[in-house]
Amino acid sequence: MPNPADPILSVQQIKKVYNGRLVLDNVSFDVQRGEVFVIMGGSGCGKSTMLRIMAGGVQPTSGKILFNGRDMSAVKGDEREKMRRRFGMSFQSAALLDYLTVEENVCLPIKEHTKLDPHIISIMAQTKLNLVGLQGFANFLPDALSGGMRKRAGLARAIAMDPEIVFYDEPTAGLDPVVCAVVDQLILDLTRKLQITSIVVTHNMESVFRIADRVAMLYQGRLLQVGTAQEIKNSSDPVVQQFIRGEIDGPIQMS
């Protein structure tokens, strides 16, 4: 049984090379149980790759990820699949299967991994849809939903198997400010109510300071700073400050 004080996920000296290009360079940090941990950084800084490595979908070139103290790369086969079921992932595009209704999408992981009665599975899916405020939309196809609703449906599917960690890839990208705030509140509510750990990748600064317990800033594949939202806000690092304020002039140069 893991000690609640120990980090749920420990990222240790992760390096990732894609087609000869160094995407992540020696990145290390810990994610504590029950917190909302935000990874922020500019486009192409490697934050989405970092998220996928943490979720077990991409193998790092070197370094390791410890989940509850256990090296994920050492776990293979069925046991690895079981371990990954303790993670949920909310995608930037929601990634709902187009030909399934919202409820069928949420039911999918439960149906695939359990032998529960379809009626029970449907009730479980309805519960998750209620949690994200999509009651009444169970029989809609994803195409019939707005961007914000699709994201919420994707979130309902991500929490379908009651995961310990939910990864969010740009959860507010492409949404209007009000829907952004709704999605942010939902992330906070789910984290607290379901006692899960949320790891969010975003470059939306409003979102960062609305939801983050702690923040890691990635820049050019390296971890620039990690700390509480307040510490990041008050950072003396000119790169962090330029990024937070969205200024043109500063050390971050657009090529």
Binding site: K82, S93, R157
Partner: peptide, 21 residues
């Protein structure tokens, strides 16, 4: 289109083998 819309990755993340499914 499932691949470019991250749906294949979503299946994999849910522990559903895309080849089998």
């Amino acid at each position: 289109s499932m691949k470019v819309n991250e749906q294949i990755e979503a299946l994999d993340t849910m522990g559903i083998n895309p080849v089998r499914y």
